[in-house]
Amino acid sequence: MRLVNDKLFRERPDGAVRLIGGYCAGCERVHFPQGDTCPYCSLSECTESELGPRATLWLFTSVLRPPPGYRGQVPFGFGIVELEQGLRVVTRLTEPDLAKLHRGMTMKLVISPLHTAEDGERVTTYAFAPEPTV
């Protein structure tokens, strides 16, 4: 199994999933994906900051046709979620049916299959899934 980008997210040994963001001590803000330099204040001493797993759905749509360079299934959900740490990120959503999504609903970070490469290797990415209501 291959992660679409191993600098973006990780699955901990206990199965918990986190995004890998950056934290800047200069302006006390987090960013994603992690960079050495803070995109807000340009200080170059950012440290890693794990983000997620909970978020609130902000905006969403459904992608119906495969975009360039994409070999996975369509349709798939696409949107912006607000992480519990306050940061908004653009993300894939596991739910493509817009009737099942609504603004403000709680979402959870998951690892989601993307496609299977020619050599048979499964490629996965991070995505947000609606949190089942108890």
Partner: peptide, 15 residues
């Protein structure tokens, strides 16, 4: 971003 399906210009417009 392309491989993950995030390079969808019209989806950004839709949001």
């Amino acid at each position: 971003r392309e491989e993950a399906g995030l390079a969808v210009t019209p989806a950004y417009f839709a949001l």
